[in-house]
Design a binder for these strands. Sequence first.
DNA 1: GCTAACTTTTAGACGTACCTAAAACTGGTT
DNA 2: AACCAGTTTTAGGTACGTCTAAAAGTTAGC
Lengths: 236, 236
Amino acid sequence: MSPEIETLSLGSSRQRDGLNHQAIEDYLKTIYGLEQEESPVSTSRIAAAREVKPGSATSMVQRLHKLNLVNYEKHYGVTLTDAGRDIALEVIRHHRLVELYLIEALGFGWDEVHEQADLLEHVISEKLEERIAAALNHPEFDPHGDPIPGKDGRVADLQNLPLSNLGPGTRAVVSRIPDDADGEMLRYLGSLGLTPGQELVVCEVAPFDGPLTLDVDGAQQIVGRRVAGAVLVRRI
Amino acid sequence: MSPEIETLSLGSSRQRDGLNHQAIEDYLKTIYGLEQEESPVSTSRIAAAREVKPGSATSMVQRLHKLNLVNYEKHYGVTLTDAGRDIALEVIRHHRLVELYLIEALGFGWDEVHEQADLLEHVISEKLEERIAAALNHPEFDPHGDPIPGKDGRVADLQNLPLSNLGPGTRAVVSRIPDDADGEMLRYLGSLGLTPGQELVVCEVAPFDGPLTLDVDGAQQIVGRRVAGAVLVRRI
DNA sequence: GCTAACTTTTAGACGTACCTAAAACTGGTT
DNA sequence: AACCAGTTTTAGGTACGTCTAAAAGTTAGC
């Protein structure tokens, strides 16, 4: 009799075995996000993202490795296994469905749902997930413009790039705002009209990391580089 | 700098200090329920209700005592302090609001929401609680007939008694079905028409713990003592 | 190719929440 | 009053997820 199951199965294990795998789910979600930027992922990047000390991240990674949820080689880096990615995608699916539900059904603002969704994502049963998805008419994108992974694990791909990468004269549509941006930033973007789906034209790009001048629905808006880096767009 | 706050404040401490107090909340909720039956509460009753070993309950009670959430004297028993009761009532409020919401807003059956609510009750922010309560029009009772504690800590009182305590000829209305009854029992009661709000008349009570014969909406129903003990009613 | 600076891992510790097993206490009987 | 049965507490151990501090490994400059 092994003291711990060898490979965690997807999702409902949480309900079935009565164990709380919140920390595991959070690490897998973090690693998934970091792999999008650069793979393999170093333990120090994980530690920074999770706001824990490097040693804590290392020991958690070793645990995930024993559970066959990540591939791990000392001093080299971490990648998700298929099993690990499945769990990460399910948690992300829960997160984004919940965010959208809080906004659509309960009237929350799009800048105030992230923290609540971080808590709820771990305690959503398969059945509740299904009911929420149905109530929202099986959406493909969450309110931040992030794609919601399907139950088959497929994620719509967008070729997003940061607004700060565009040259003058480019037309684009705001595709997503990373949902870990702070609330003040989100409200500021909202006041500029920069919400997912909004079209814009880049008018000017000042040199030396200077501000961008945008045309948003006919209004001229000037934003700094840091803000422009936080807004992801698709060229149109 | 003390390593732990002295008295937990109500509710939003969960959000404020970032700690997970799920176990504490579960124990307080359990103790609250047991105090309704008999006070003070022995550690062994707590252990049985929480399905842990007696020693585990004792050590948790000692921790709750240090946090000023319960009064505790060795070998005598446990009662909630005001601070402890405040937390217990808030968790119960969350639980019952969530149960009702799952049924009313998301189409769940009343026999399948208890476990999901046990998970959700610990991760509902003040704001979400308020939105859910508003969406339900600030209800006073949950679908099992249990009263939902108000934010002021007041609980509607019902003088419920078990159906098994009634004598022949008594008229009564089903007030609540304890929501920790198993799903099969809940479905069985549903099939007999014994749902909260239903009126009934006790026709016969067989001796030696024999079955009760009921008139439910003109239909004769015969139920055993164990089932009758699980149904709480109010005399009318 | 050596060394300094940095990253990563290891080692040992702590608090939570559980366990098992043994000790201590309680209440009722003789 | 002493014992017995049952309850309750204590003592010591485990897994998780974090920490700090020290050791080991990697990379880059010279």
